[in-house]
Computed example of a mutant assay.
Amino acid sequence: MIKINIPGYRLLELEYLVLDFNGTLAVDGKLIGGVAESLNELSKHIKIKVITADTFGTVRKELNSIDCELAILGNGNQVKQKARVVKQLGSKRCVSIGNGFNDWKMLKVSALGIVTLQDEGAATKSIVNASVMSKSINDALDFLLKPDRLIATLRR
């Protein structure tokens, strides 16, 4: 578990990190540099779940060395599917990271929603439903590895 007490905001007691793959952890189906190391470090403290439609068909190969659980989404409303995963895990125990339109509800229902703005951009609906925005996945993961950064951003 990762505990982060943010003055004037809330005490976060995070047990799950839920992540989108393409556009968040990867660009064009390839894992972004530094992500594997950060995720493996985080996996010592929090359970990691990657949920994706696997647009490029590369997710299993790219996540092979990472201690995480993988869920590949089926056809249908992916907004609802991703949010349902967070709710099943327990919204108050989840931090989620994403960038696409299909991530907006998962970001909203999580105790902490982080939207990333990288090569694929970020859907406006996801930006306004996140708790915080980051310029990269590595910076987003550092919010959890170096929580004083998150505290400085969200304290009230």
Results as ranks from 00 to 15, higher is better:
V27D: 11
E15K: 15
G100L: 03
S126Y: 00
N129W: 03
K3V: 10
A36L: 01
I72A: 05
L107H: 09
G8N: 12
A140I: 11
R93M: 04
G23F: 02
D139C: 02
M1F: 04
K92A: 14
I48Y: 04
K44H: 14
G90Y: 06
N40F: 09
A36G: 08
K44E: 15
G98M: 11
E120Q: 12
A83Y: 00
D139G: 05
L73P: 06
C68D: 02
S38N: 14
I151N: 03
I127C: 06
A122C: 14
G98N: 10
D103I: 09
I51H: 08
G98F: 05
V95Q: 13
I72Q: 07
L42V: 14
S126I: 04
G57T: 09
I66F: 08
D54Y: 09
S136D: 13
D54G: 10
N129L: 14
Q81A: 14
H45M: 10
N40Q: 13
E41Y: 15
L112T: 11
R156W: 05
K47P: 00
N129H: 15
L73C: 10
C94P: 05
V79I: 15
A152P: 00
V86T: 10
E62I: 11
E15F: 04
E13L: 02
N99Q: 10
A122K: 02
L63F: 04
R149T: 01
L89T: 04
N22D: 15
L154M: 04
I72D: 07
A140Y: 10
L14Y: 07
E62T: 14
T24S: 14
S96P: 02
T153D: 01
L145R: 15
K87C: 01
A123G: 06
N129G: 06
V85T: 06
I4E: 01
G33F: 03
V79R: 00
L12F: 07
L150I: 03
I137H: 10
T116Y: 06
S131P: 09
S110Y: 10
E62N: 12
D67A: 08
R60E: 15
M133I: 13
L144Q: 13
K146E: 13
K82W: 05
